[in-house]
């Protein structure tokens, strides 16, 4: 049983979390998985605490996951969804956040299309902030649940070779997972057309491949990213059909993979684009495990952040 290593004020980036921090979070998560298995899935731990889910981008999955997590801890959970367009119509981020201060939230869960928004918010109000995705920067809670899912399945997070496939340039999930996997000594290779691999990615210490077929046989985990058409005003590849042909995962390509390879996807899945339907639903796909772990990880984070005072 590990004692608490540090105090974590906010969850903004995987870069802020040491291996010990992550292990401590997982240890706490295990306790909440036990709660999730009970007939009464609710504990009074955060009674009287206020958690605000402030979502400037639509994400039913992540928001619902945080909402369930907060409610199972008996927190008062308030959902505020703002379309970025209403913000650009005059109400600034600062105005929005200042208005929330009246509700005296203990934890603010923020999803925002701009990189760094969660960090900017920590300078604007007192609450603990959890970054639930900021632009193309990071999505640390997704990475934590991905790591946990891998650990559940492979019994380790060390010495693995993880391939992250797709739109690396615009993927916060990729950045957070790279940082997290490297903490445990796993190797990451990013895979995609060169136009989707950002300049400077080598600084993360990852391998880069433009040829999925050539590297798939060496991978223990294949993490497929969603192709985010909405983030491109000009597609960085000719069309989805061609993308799918070279970088989509189908049964035929999967023949070349290791027999114990597992498939992950942060969702929502574009079936038939980055991943063939029969692959998404196969037993070696951990996509549903990811969803389940999401609630427990988020319970752990809400609990740990609420558990201390500044």
């Amino acid at each position: 049983m590990k004692e608490t290593p540090v105090r974590i004020p906010h969850i903004l980036s995987m870069a802020d979390l040491s291996r010990e921090d992550i292990e401590f979070i997982f240890q706490t998560t295990d306790r909440f998985r036990e709660v999730g298995g009970r007939p009464i899935k609710k504990v009074p731990a955060l009674r009287g605490k206020t958690v605000i889910n402030l979502f400037f981008e639509n994400s039913t999955r992540t928001r619902t996951s945080f909402e369930i997590a907060g409610k199972r801890l008996s927190a008062d959970v308030i959902n505020i969804t703002k379309s970025s367009s209403s913000v650009s119509k005059g109400e600034s981020l600062l105005d929005t956040v200042k208005n929330l201060e009246a509700m005296a939230p203990d934890v603010l869960v923020v999803r925002h299309p701009a990189a760094g928004a969660a960090q900017t918010i920590t300078r604007m109000l007192k609450a603990r902030v959890i970054n639930a995705g900021d632009g193309a920067h990071e999505h640390p809670t997704q990475a934590l649940l991905d790591l946990l899912t891998i650990r559940d399945h492979k019994k380790t997070l060390s010495g693995l070779h993880v391939g992250i496939v797709g739109d690396i340039a615009h993927s916060r999930v990729a950045r957070s997972n790279i940082l997290g996997l490297q903490r445990f000594g796993s190797k990451v290779t990013v895979i995609g057309p060169k136009s989707l691999i950002p300049l400077g990615i080598e600084a993360f210490g990852v391998g880069v491949s433009y040829d999925f077929k050539a590297v798939i046989g060496d991978l223990d985990i294949i993490m497929m990213l969603r192709i985010q058409g909405e983030r491109h005003d000009r597609l960085p590849f000719p069309n989805l059909r061609e993308y799918s042909r070279f970088f989509g995962l189908n049964l035929q390509l999967l023949q070349k993979a290791k027999s114990d390879v597992v498939i992950m996807h942060p969702g929502p899945v574009n079936r038939g684009v980055e991943i063939a339907p029969e692959v998404a639903d196969a037993p070696y796909s951990l996509i549903l495990n990811q969803v389940k772990n999401g609630v427990a990880v988020r319970m752990a984070l809400l609990y740990l952040l609420s558990g201390t005072e500044e």
Partner: peptide
Amino acid sequence: LDINLYRDDLSQASEMPVVKET
């Protein structure tokens, strides 16, 4: 039995709470 999740003085701790196994 771990009672951390049922305490009424959560925020008074200065360290992050360690939840043990029930």
